[in-house]
Nucleic acid binder design. Structure first.
Lengths: 231, 231
DNA sequence: TTATTTATGTCGCTT
DNA sequence: AAGCGACGTAAATAA
């Protein structure tokens, strides 16, 4: 990884054209050839970037560029598309290279799959006397997260989301419509379960007779702390 | 902006929980307090990050952490939410600070205004013999992007969008309805011009007798390369 | 302000 | 390889 802090301007052409006026910025050149151009603010998104695979060619500035004070021109060309980023460097304030090695990568926790596994193991959270039929119960338009039966034996379809918004309710509605055509299952009740349920989604669900269940991730994890075996 | 290259591990809790095992990474601390944790690959997205507003507290490692070889603990806390990123630093390979100043920001090109200016300058793209009447031709419900006359002298109203969808056709339809009430102009023909025209929009436009024109941004720019003077 | 749409989206998974 | 959906989506735009 190479880190350069320099006064520079840049021009990108690809899916759009964009220009970056002269200013001091951080340029990161990663081991895979990708380039990030960061300002000292904003979000984690660079002002300009090139995704791998791409290659950089360093060239000397032409006369007109020299006149403007350009000391180096970096032309970064994407290997497969015609995406192209050209950086004109003026004063370079910092330039260093570092060997980082490969990264073991991020381990995510608390994703939908995990919530589903925990809710399947603690299905009584949906209601006393509930029993699991199966996870990923198949339908013609895709699997329902969980199919269960309540204390009276009636089918219950459960859709799980980390964040429950309207889309999730629509999805569950489609499943319910299909499942209710199956005489072995009908009538199927719907439960929309999420760590957080948006007010709009709650209103829509309630209007359609779907009950909402807010999942407390930490509490569920506390009940079954050796959560890895759930998978 | 502070740049640190160090062997580190990290733990994020917020909308999800995530862990980053020990490895050498780039840590960027921006002037607004935001933090990026980059590996030497992947895309422009950091492995972990904290968006502003947030504040960092540097603390000494406790005994257990010392035992693991931790030399510093950085606790980055979001100002408004309970998002939190904790970084345990081991060996620090690089540490430097740079004053970048504020950034003028990215100038995106190829926007509707630019397309309009270029099409006005190259009005024959609409059809041979066409002449420009004026840009932003006023009507009671707002200005039409371009009003022109074809080779026979008949009025042509042009609506320009970067991406042409149904809304744009509806908009042009409303303009045409108004313009055709003007005896000096009627009959007014409609042209829907966009870099990309969605199939639905094309069907609707055709159905209403509006012709479609796909604009080739690069080709138009090539014809008039000193595009800045168009504004 | 909030809600909706866009994105050089990226990322991960399935067909 | 191509398509589809989720994302700590973020960012821009419209209402």
């Amino acid at each position: 990884m190479r880190l350069v802090v320099a006064r520079c301007s840049a021009h990108y052409t690809g899916r759009l054209s964009a220009h970056l006026p002269l200013a001091t910025r951080l340029i990161v050149v990663k081991a895979d050839g990708s380039v990030l151009l960061h300002s000292d603010g904003g979000s984690y998104k660079p002002l300009n970037w090139m995704s791998p695979p791409c290659a950089m060619a360093v060239t000397a500035p032409d006369d007109a560029a020299l006149e403007r004070g350009v000391t180096q021109v970096w032309a970064v060309q994407h290997a497969k598309s015609d995406d192209r980023l050209e950086i004109e460097l003026h004063e370079i304030h910092h330039d260093s290279a570092h060997d980082l090695g490969i990264d073991p990568g991020l381990v995510k926790d608390g994703v939908e799959a995990h919530l589903q596994a925990m809710l399947a193991a603690q299905i009584e959270l949906v209601g006393s006397g509930h029993t699991l039929v199966r996870r990923e119960y198949p339908t013609a338009i895709g699997p329902v997260d969980i199919l269960a039966r309540d204390a009276s034996g009636a089918a219950v379809a459960i859709e799980i989301k980390r964040r429950g918004d309207i889309d999730g309710v629509e999805q569950l509605t489609r499943y319910l419509e299909l499942l209710n055509r199956d005489p072995h299952l009908a009538p199927v009740r719907g439960v929309f379960a999420a760590q957080e349920i948006k007010p709009q989604a709650r209103v829509l669900a309630t209007d359609r007779g779907i009950s909402c269940l807010v999942l407390d991730y930490d509490a569920m994890r506390g009940v079954d702390d050796v959560d890895s075996r759930l998978f």
